[in-house]
């Protein structure tokens, strides 16, 4: 239990709860079950992407291309669905994941094999993948009436009055939790990020892990490609533009250290929830949507400053206090 709920995660949880109560006082409608369920649904995609981004950040890298990847995968399956509406929905989901994974592998290969620094690679593919959307779609949008019924139905399925999206995010949370805490692969990610030189001595193949981490990030970006398109019933060149920054902020707020090897899965989810809460609560307390971006920015800054303050490794004690 102690391992599950570290101190930092607890504080984050408390902040979310206090925030919820505070917003509730200002606007009681916000804390009704249906409203909270909406917030959770709205935050689900962010949770999934933050969890997959966490894997990349753990090994001291960042994937800036996730939003472009998401948009490209989403557009490709949308275009396919306009031509072949008869195909079953799981086919589209699988295809979206496959496309996303391929795009992720390309990132990984560029970084691990071509040795292009991760910032340059993912900045580059951020443009390339986004540009390819215009290319395949001719700049046109795919509207809700062009999708098949099946394509959009799954997303509105509810269980225990919580949405499919929410349950999917829960499933991804459990999978990533097990992956990072209970498999050799996950633990090796932590060691690689914590001390790359030492990881070499214990026989961890850095290139393999880089490619795998980016593939996982790509896989979930692809999955979210379907989710995003189905949820908003539209595929366009503009979807999720800039969303990679929200994802990274969720990780940072969740205590995933950009210096690698530090961070918990629960913290990451809580970080995403806090960001989701803020995004949804601002309109509820009558703050103009135009303030949203500035406030998110301020929160990222505050979070990283607090992180660094607490994280800054204690100086080794030499002297016995006497």
């Amino acid at each position: 239990m102690k391992k599950f709920l570290t101190n930092r995660d607890f504080i984050l949880f408390a902040i979310i709860m206090i925030g919820l109560v505070a917003v509730g006082f200002a606007n009681p409608l916000f804390v009704t079950p249906s409203s909270i369920s909406d917030v959770l649904t709205d935050t689900s995609i962010l949770i999934i992407l933050a969890l997959s981004q966490m894997i990349v950040i753990l090994i001291r890298a960042i994937d800036l291309s996730v939003a472009s990847n998401l948009a490209l995968s989403g557009m490709l399956i949308s275009l396919l669905s306009t031509v072949h509406p008869e195909l079953p929905v799981y086919y589209f989901i699988a295809l979206s994941c496959v496309i996303g994974t391929v795009l992720g592998v390309l990132n990984g290969v560029s970084i691990a094999i071509l040795k292009v620094p991760f910032i340059v690679t993912t900045l580059g593919t951020l443009s390339i993948y986004r540009g390819l959307i215009y290319f395949v779609s001719d700049g046109k949008q795919v509207y809700s009436n062009e999708f098949s019924k099946d394509f959009l139905a799954l997303i509105h399925y509810k269980f225990l009055s919580l949405s499919f999206l929410f349950w999917l995010a829960v499933a991804v949370f459990i999978i990533i939790y097990i992956l990072l805490n209970h498999t050799r692969f996950g633990r090796n990610l932590y060691s690689l990020g914590g001390n790359p030189d030492a990881a070499k001595y214990i026989g961890i193949n850095e290139n393999k892990y880089i490619i795998l981490a980016y593939s996982i990030s790509g896989f979930f970006a692809g999955l979210c490609g379907y989710l995003w398109v189905a949820r908003y019933s539209v595929a366009s060149t503009q979807i999720a533009i800039g969303f990679e920054l929200t994802v990274i902020s969720a990780c940072v707020v969740g205590g995933i250290s950009v210096m690698g090897g530090v961070g918990t899965v629960l913290g990451c989810v809580l970080g995403a929830l806090l960001i989701g809460l803020i995004r949804n609560a601002l309109p509820a307390v009558d703050i103009s949507q135009f303030w949203q971006l500035a406030i998110s920015g301020a929160i990222i800054l505050i979070a990283i400053i607090i992180n660094t303050k607490t994280e800054q490794r204690k100086e080794k004690t030499i002297m016995v206090e006497n």
């Binding site: 633990r187 090796n188 932590y190 060691s191 914590g194 001390n195 214990i202 090897g261 490794r313």
Partner: peptide
């Protein structure tokens, strides 16, 4: 030190060879 500062003693001992 080729060790992992942020990981536990147990994990450092079994690193690269976790028991499953």
């Amino acid at each position: 030190s080729v060790m992992f500062d942020e990981l536990t003693v147990t994990e450092n001992i079994f690193i690269g060879n976790h028991l499953t």
